[in-house]
Nucleic acid binder design. Sequence first.
RNA 1: UGGGGUGUCGCCAAGCGGUAAGGCACCAGACUCUGACUCUGGCAAUCGUGGGUUCGAAUCCUACCACCCCAGCCA
Length: 570
Amino acid sequence: MKDTNQPLTTNFIQNIITEDLRQGKNDGRVHTRFPPEPNGYLHIGHAKSICLNFGLAEANGGLCNLRFDDTNPSKEEIEFVESIKEDVRWLGFDWGDRLYYASDYFDQLYEYAVQLIKAGKAYVCDLSAEEIKEYRGTLIEPGKESPYRNRSVEENLDLFERMKAGEFPEGSRVLRAKIDMASPNLNMRDPVLYRIMHKEHHRTGNKWCIYPMYDFAHPLSDALEGITHSICTLEFADHRPLYDWVLDNVDYSKEAKAKGRPQQIEFARLNLTYTVMSKRKLRILVEEGYVSGWDDPRMPTISGLRRRGYTPEAIRDFCERIGVAKSNSVVDIGMLEHCIREDLNKRAPRAMAVLRPLKVVIDNYPEDQVEWFEAENNPNDPDAGSRKIPFSKVIYIEQEDFMEDPPKKFFRLAPGREVRLKHAYIIKCEQVIKDEKTGEILEVHCTYDPETKSGEQGSGKKVKGTLHWVSAAHAVKAEVRLYDYLFTKENPEDEEDGSDFRANLNPHSLVVLPSALVEPSLAEAEPGSRYQFLRQGYFCVDPVDSKPGNLVFNRIVSLRDTWAKIKKEE
RNA sequence: UGGGGUGUCGCCAAGCGGUAAGGCACCAGACUCUGACUCUGGCAAUCGUGGGUUCGAAUCCUACCACCCCAGCCA
């Protein structure tokens, strides 16, 4: 994807890799991995990690594995591994034949645990979970050594084997590393390596009733796969000494796919304004029905963004632009919106759609006449071709494009004013018809100037405003879903005491317009296809709910709107 | 009162001892049959603070301050 030798962006991880390469570390290999736990859906934060891992590998002539970190059968499900694979693939990345699971290594990991026991570096501990917690000490006080810490190697071997054989109830014993109960780093205070769980695993079935912990499985999985740079998020920085301890104290050289030793590097996870990102909170949104599901177009999940109409290209561009560093940061959601606008501006065919219709009758236009105008599909892409649009006596325009008593800077339709109808004629407003009781504007009567037909001589006449429109007789009805941020505050966590992020939910995050009218060329629009509705924004045919004869469009993002800004100022 | 991490323009983020990139946002103008796009110009940072080293420091030293993470048999 990159055509230069120099990586497009530089960041501290690339700098480390560059230096490693210069020193000939790992025989010049660069091998990364994306290691999701299959217990939820991927979101834009994962996309950052995916782009980083796959991108770094590609930029440095290396490889990136997809590895499911499935060491905890009580939380993981097959449904998630499928959705994760789909999302990574959709984002545009290819793990080739390197699809792995930590569970692939369970046999080997068991042997490594035995290795540690034999070396006197791990022991079976009979303390209860509560007791282990008590013995661990606190942030400022050292822990106490477990009374089981000095069991003989033989006894530990026997006990561990019987743990594996299923002789003991869940939670009754664990295997622990023997490191240092006085370490200022809590992770080093004899961390648990294996726990008993009488649970069926989605891949290994009932073969195991003891499962390795992340801290044991992860470094060794990396080592076995020949990973050189093991990239993870900041909260794992405290685990790095343990990661290194495991690699230092287990001999995996015979089984590893390549020589060398993985290095853990941590970066800051992505945060976005107006967005929550934690699995827990996203789950709440889904389970408590604030959204329609994991793929609700308002969700920051990959599947939500996909359904909303975001392109993988835009998401990758976004991940490139935000950079990678170690400081906690919150990226302005406007950055994401900029990326999708930029991508769709060059790719999305234009179309006319009237979201909130206002009837306009052109009094001097022949009753039964229909003219078909040529309309370019994309002014920024001549190759996109053109299409025909019907024009007739009765049309609809946007309600907000007409004002009876407009402010100075309004240059759309108003009594006595002229505007151009995009691709058609200039019209002049002659009369407003209102409901006598409510004052509601029912329809507007105009006259058109036949000399101003789009593209012809007399069409040079200048007017300030150009409106989009649809022919009443030809328009196709459609449902349009306008999405806004899910939260009203930049930081959804910013709540009054007593409440939580739910209090900041935006009640208008979804506005459904059941009776929008779109130009007839859209009648057969394919699910998932994207359009720019002129002067409105980018829209995507909803891949789930849109059916022939019952079109549903999702607004991906609005166009930049300087008029809206002017209005706000006044 | 422990350990780890981070502090460069409103938001991201380069910078690695030689005198502050870039993007987003924002402002102004040009263009415009999308108030879009595009273009052009503008925009801001005493580089967390105070000391010190140096001819010279965002970059080195030092003290301090602020924020984030860690006491799951989660990852």
